[in-house]
Amino acid sequence: MAVKQFPIEAGHVMAFARAIGDSNPAYYADTYSSESEAGAIIAPPTFVEASSHFDPDYFLRPKIGEDWFGSGETPTSRKPSEKKEKASRTSGGGLHAEQRYVYHKSVEVGDVLSATKKLGKTWVKQGRRGGKLNFSEAVTEYRNQNGELVITATMVGVSTERAATVKE
């Protein structure tokens, strides 16, 4: 994944802050303080996840004019022939195992970020209930309009051979 332009917009930051239930005035145009340390509306620490909106190939967003694999008339709208081929990354498949951020600079409304992603290590673990767990790491570097590194994000995904079970 590469994101060429990820504009940090006030309405988007507001919607994201609301979604995580965060009423911190620093994230809202009508309540932030220009006298604050940042002097601008800043983005919450996990906001860069929303860069997926600006990734033209992001596979977890329905594409205009294309079939979507979620339910419609039936539990999946994917044709049987497609189901198997793409099953590994959707059904019972990928879960988010770890997420790490290193913050170099604040992300502010008005910034325009870009992101480059590199695949990192992969490793295999034996699951508690049998079956292999395949882990893979991806490192995304977010830079601002001045070319400065603002956030380094490391995502660890795990794919299981069957649906992970609930721990209770």
Binding site: A97, E98, R100, Y101, V102, Y103, T154, V166, K167, E168
Partner: peptide, 14 residues
Amino acid sequence: DGRLTNFGVRFTAQ
């Protein structure tokens, strides 16, 4: 605000 230098987690249960 704007103070974090690192934040990393493992997701241990759904």
